[in-house]
Structures are given as C-alpha cells and as structure tokens.
C-alpha cells in the first residue's frame, strides 16, 4: 500500500506533463486566435516558442537553487543537480533560439529585401544578442566545470560561477533588451503574461503550455540526474 502511494507521488507530475502537452498540441492548433497583422496564424507560436524560454528560466532557476544548496551543505549531489539542470536549460534555450529564428524569418524579415539585408537588420535585435550572451555564459559554466578534475574544487568553483551566470541572465535577457528599440514584443512589459494583452481563449492554452514544457524539462533532467548518480555510485563501489 505504502509502495503504491510512493509510485503515485513519483508519477503524478509526469502524467500531468503528458496531459498538459497533449492539450497544448491539440488545443494550440485549433483554438480561435485573433487575426493580427503580420502575425496571423503564427501567434500560435506563443504556446511553443515562448514555452521554451519559460522552461529555460525554470530550469536555470532550479539550477541556481541547487548551486546555493551545494554551497550551504557541500553535498556533491547538489552540484550534479545544478549541472544537469543548467544543461537542460541550455537545450531549451537553444530550441527557443531556433524556433525564434524560424518565426522571425516570416514575420520580421521584409520579403522584398534580399535575405542578407534582412539578416543585417535582424542581427541587431537586442533580445537576440542578449539571449546569445546568456547562453554563452552558460556554455562557459559547462566548460569551466568540466575542465576541473578535482571534484570538490570543481563543485565549489562552478557553483559560485553558476550564481554569477544566473545574475547575468537578468540584465542580458530581461533588462537590456527592454532599454533598446526592438521589434521583439515585450518592450513595455510582459505581453505574454499580461492579462489584457492575451485573449482569454489563448491564455487557457498558454499557461498549461508553459507548465507542461517546464515539467517536461524537469522530467528529462531528473532522468539524467538519476543516471549520473547511479554512475557515481558504481564508480565509488
């Protein structure tokens, strides 16, 4: 009986993740959306492209929390947690970047201009540069962590660096892009989170989508963590 309860506690959020993402994919394509100029049907990308960034922010936040936990307890387990969460955050960030690139090619780029001219204009987007900087800082975290062979030193240095990386995340993707002129939405606030900007029908899909993507990221990360903990145990045994 007790065991059954345990399995339910382990599984309920994974089931929730599956249900929410299936809902996102089905409802996200069929829900009626306002026909905005230039955006048209692409507003549906709100459930997918923005979801990637929400998942990334969630994973990086969990990662930095685990780094702090490591520095408080010096338990190497938390360092492994922090590393795996930041790797998954980077993957979601890259997916967000790639999906954003596709989306902007058909909404921002002027079809009358040659591609390289459009690229010249779009590459100046502060939000793109900011996101690239943020991701590069996290790449540096991985390089730094994996280049130190002493386990305790590695954990300590990379945990401190992770806190700095998380602190840099805010100016680079939240603050600086907002201070500069940009085509990217979110200049004057949080359009996706603002209750007046998103019609209720879309909001009904949007929030489940964000939660679902974040849960998917956490799910994959827990698998990676469990695998590396098993590996660690085998190495010590």
């Amino acid at each position: 009986m007790n065991r059954k309860k345990n399995t339910f506690a382990q599984w309920w959020w994974k089931i929730l993740c599956i249900v929410l993402l299936l809902f996102t994919f089905i409802k996200g394509l069929t829900v009626k959306i306002p026909n905005l100029p230039a955006l048209e049907e692409t507003s549906r990308n709100l459930f997918f492209h923005v979801g990637m960034w929400m998942a990334m922010m969630t994973l990086f936040t969990v990662s930095v929390v685990n780094s702090i936990r490591y520095l408080r307890t010096f338990n190497l387990k938390y360092d492994i947690y922090a590393r795996q969460y930041s790797v998954m955050g980077i993957i979601f960030g890259l997916l967000g970047y790639a999906t954003g690139a596709i989306w902007m090619s058909y909404t921002w780029a002027d079809p009358n201009n040659p591609l390289f001219q459009s690229f010249g204009a779009l590459a100046r987007e502060p939000k793109l540069i900011g996101a690239a900087v943020a991701l590069l800082i996290y790449f540096a975290y991985l390089v730094l962590r994996d280049s130190i062979s002493d386990m305790d030193k590695r954990a300590r240095i990379s945990s401190v660096y992770n806190i700095f990386a998380y602190a840099m995340l805010f100016p680079s993707i939240w603050i600086v892009p907002r201070l500069l002129p940009s085509l990217h939405p979110g200049q004057e606030g949080n359009p996706a989170m603002n209750f007046n900007d998103v019609i209720p029908e879309m909001r009904m899909v949007e929030f489940p989508a964000f939660v679902g993507w974040a849960l998917l990221g956490v799910w994959i990360t827990t698998l990676k963590i469990r695998l590396s903990l098993v590996k660690e145990k085998r190495m010590n045994a």
Binding site: L21, L22, F25, I26, L29, T30
Partner: peptide, 14 residues
Amino acid sequence: RIYVVIAVMTTILV
C-alpha cells in the same frame, strides 16, 4: 485538414 497535422504531431509527442 488541420486535424491531420494534429494527428501527426500528437503521434510524435506520444
């Protein structure tokens, strides 16, 4: 035929 696309996407997701 948008539901065909939904069926394909759902299959991949599942």
